[in-house]
């Protein structure tokens, strides 16, 4: 893994959201490599592959067929191999239960999918440039949900 770019992975079953995600990074012109998977199962298979390159940041949609985002989160957090991956929850809903559950399971940040493309670009740019070391140490329920 090279250090001069950030490796970003998204697991989302929604084709449009995957499109916005990739287009946003294209326009951001940050040194990133973006991979997308269309469900949780596909994601976990890729991560568990022996030759897999692990992402720096993993964006997880919660509501996915076959394997949901929360199941992926639990699996990843229970495996020491993945301890360095920062996990951003990337969901349409911002319900209290979802936020509470993912926080308890050890996600690093919770992003509510914005409804404006420019907002999306700003959020992704912010998330990629976060100093995760610092953010994780100071993490609490109030700054867990990313607000613009």
């Amino acid at each position: 893994m090279q250090e001069d770019f950030t490796y970003v992975v998204l697991a989302d079953d929604d084709e449009d959201d995957r499109l916005f995600f990739v287009e946003a990074f294209d326009e951001l012109k940050i040194q990133t490599k973006v991979d997308v998977y269309k469900d949780g199962l596909e994601l976990m298979d890729a991560l568990n592959h022996p030759d897999a390159v692990l992402p720096n940041i993993l964006f997880l949609d919660l509501n996915m067929p076959k394997k949901s985002g929360i199941e992926c989160l639990i699996e990843i957090k229970s495996n020491k191999k993945f301890k360095d991956i920062a996990i951003a929850i990337y969901s349409t809903s911002a319900s209290e239960e979802d936020i509470e559950d993912t926080f308890v399971q050890g996600a690093n940040i919770y992003i509510k999918k914005p409804s404006d493309f420019n907002d999306l670009k700003k959020i992704l740019s912010d998330v990629v440039t976060i100093n995760w070391q610092y953010h994780t140490n100071a993490l609490d329920k109030d700054n867990f949900l990313l607000r613009l």
Partner: peptide, 9 residues
């Protein structure tokens, strides 16, 4: 709705 808005933008 979110997608409509995003596509609009």
């Amino acid at each position: 709705l979110r997608k409509i808005q995003t596509f609009l933008s």
